[in-house]
């Protein structure tokens, strides 16, 4: 099924998730400025169609591995927004009880194997999750979201080879936002990313990450291929990064004009609204209602996170092992 053939409910769900990610990230950015968030964050705003376009093709038992820029993936895979916000605030009610923070948000029960502080940390883990499905005879798939920076890590190259020789049900979703930290990917990535897959005989596709429907359809094909036992796919998803590398990054390596044009011309939310409007799939009023609901949820999440208790001190030494000795 193509994205344009999705039911009204599914389309509303996709829009709600993308909108949730955007509002969540904009709000985290604002809260960071208040000084009440203890750590650092890497914001996903602008890239929403990638996470949601891929994850709309997954079910709960499928797994995803993520990156330091992971909030969007977490939301798209079903993590609780209240728990995520509390985690970012370092609170006991956080999804990881305040022990992980922004870069380690995970909910294994939802198939979210964790944001990851290590560039290139995710691909081997996704291969492992895919191996679990293969050994146990399930048709689950694993998706690893990584950036254009991780494409240059040895773990990515090793994992792509492993996945291809073992025909693992893995999708390598490479979100190319044009920058590895403050360095342009054009400066550090040799050749075309999809050709790295092609060299291994791996299926691949290059898609516009601003278009939810393009991402959705490419991912649908990759997921179906993986579920059929025909092995991995690499998706090269070109997508804009609205904020700097981290919250507080002056982002002075891009011109003001470039950033303004990016936000004006490459916004997945307005693109989505235009496409569903033109096709008369959803009404403006439906989408506006979602915007209002999402805003209320995020307000509530921040309020609850601010009010929540810090983790108790004795939790410092728990959860290191299941049993020790």
């Amino acid at each position: 099924m193509t994205g344009m053939q999705l039911s009204r409910e599914k389309l509303l769900e996709a829009y709600r998730m993308m909108r949730t990610i955007r509002v969540f990230e904009d709000r985290v950015s604002a809260e960071m400025a208040s000084g009440d968030i203890p750590g650092n964050t890497h914001l996903y705003a602008g890239q929403e169609a990638s996470a949601v376009g891929v994850c709309m093709n997954l079910v709960q038992s499928d797994n995803i591995a993520s990156t330091h820029r992971g909030h969007g993936h977490c939301i798209a895979k079903g993590c609780d927004v209240h728990g995520m916000m509390a985690e970012i605030f370092g609170k006991d009610t956080g999804i990881c009880r305040g022990k992980g923070g922004s870069m380690h948000i995970a909910d294994l029960s939802k198939g979210m194997l964790g944001a990851n502080g290590i560039v290139g940390g995710g691909p081997p883990l996704a291969c492992g999750a895919a191996m679990t499905a293969q050994v146990l005879g399930r048709d689950d798939v694993a998706v690893v979201f990584s950036g254009d920076g991780a494409i240059n890590q040895g773990t990515t190259a090793e994992s792509m080879n492993l996945a291809q020789v073992w025909k693992l049900p893995v999708i390598f979703a490479v979100e190319d936002n044009g920058f590895g930290e403050a360095t342009a990917s054009s400066f550090v990535v040799a050749g075309e990313i999809v050709k790295r897959a092609d060299a291994l005989g791996m299926a691949f596709a290059k898609v516009d990450g601003v278009d939810f429907f393009a991402v959705h359809d490419a991912a649908a094909e990759a997921v179906a291929r993986a579920r059929r036992g025909e092995g991995p796919t690499l998706l090269h998803i070109e997508t804009p990064r609205y904020y700097g590398h981290f919250s507080g990054d002056p982002d002075n390596y891009r011109t003001a004009e470039e950033k303004a044009a990016m936000r004006r011309d490459r916004d997945c939310l307005t693109t989505f609204r235009r496409r569903v409007g033109e096709a008369k799939l959803l009404a403006e009023s439906d989408l506006d209602a979602v915007d209002a609901e999402v805003q209320a949820v995020i307000d509530s999440a921040v309020k609850a996170a601010r009010a929540a208790p810090q983790p108790p001190l004795d939790s410092l030494t728990t959860d290191v092992y299941v049993r020790y000795p």
Binding site: I95, C96, R97, D107, L108, G114, D319, V320
Partner: peptide, 8 residues
Amino acid sequence: FRYMFGGK
């Protein structure tokens, strides 16, 4: 994993 995912 265990620690940073809050024991889950």
